[in-house]
Amino acid sequence: MKAIRQAGRPRQELFRRYGMLLVLVVMVFLASMLSDRFLTASNLLNVTRQVTINAILAAGMTIVIISGGIDLSIGSVVAISGALGAGLMATGAGWAAGVLVTLLVGLALGITNGLFIAYGQLPPFIVTLATMALARGFTQVYTGGRAITVTSQTFQWFGHGYVGSIPVPVIIMIIIYILGYFFFKRTKLGRLVYAVGGNEHACRMAGIRVNRVKVAIYGINGLLAGLVGVILTARLFSAQPTAGVAYEMDAIAAVILGGTSLSGGRGNIGGTIVGALIIGVLGNVFNLMDVSPFYQDVAKGLVILVAVLLDRLLHAGGGSLRRGVSSGADQAKSA
């Protein structure tokens, strides 16, 4: 009896850590049963390529959410950074200038978000909601509602090129995740992301300059949105005024599926890539089976709900009635 109980907890722990990986494996298995086209090399490469954009955005979102924040603006930032970069190239500037400007616009907008959140002491939800609207509106104004075509072949390489047999965006994604792993594991800033999300007040009392940390976090997130701006523009041969709409939702979904807690301080980037792959595989299976995109959204919503519910059940063990109430209330407060 005793032995069983003792073994029970680590098993739960194991499931908590690798549960979503298991879900992914099961989904891949089911997908290969449902469609014999799923497990072909070209389709798998296709899935991975489709996943890249969301995965890169979700990597940044992981940082933001672990720090206890949220960023709703990234979809719009993707659009405006891509549009300004493409606009610059349309005036005759080279591909390098285009890439640089796209990245810098993303970085600048991220930093602006961070400054308002940190020094203005405003809720991230509100600040990034405002940025989301502003950046989208500005994109529409700037482009006049029309796509800006990019002709530079070198620039297009970021969306269509290959290194060996691997698409460039996939390579970029892999690099981002390796860097992300290193960021959380080894860097001081990565550590502080967890610390600030876990207890901001205690951080301040320990002499951590929380405001700077926040600006850095949103800056990194903006930079990654800029990077996606480059990839997406390259992929579509143009900057589209409606590029990136609702991308923030998929990114947040991937992070949550990956087991990162919305209340901050807990989570890991390894889970996020799994979350992004789950969303990607789901979309791909539906495409292969010719299911309407409308149903895809419904299914995505359901998967997220189930995943979060599962997570909640696993985390719930051993809390008192009061504690249950209070943690719920605290979450409401921080949201």
């Binding site: 610390a195 207890n199 205690a202 951080c203 009392m205």
Partner: peptide
């Protein structure tokens, strides 16, 4: 409230400041 980052490890908490 002010001393600890509860979800972090003993080691991280010790080196925090």
């Amino acid at each position: 409230e002010e001393g600890l980052i509860l979800p972090l490890s003993v080691m991280f908490n010790i080196s925090l400041a």
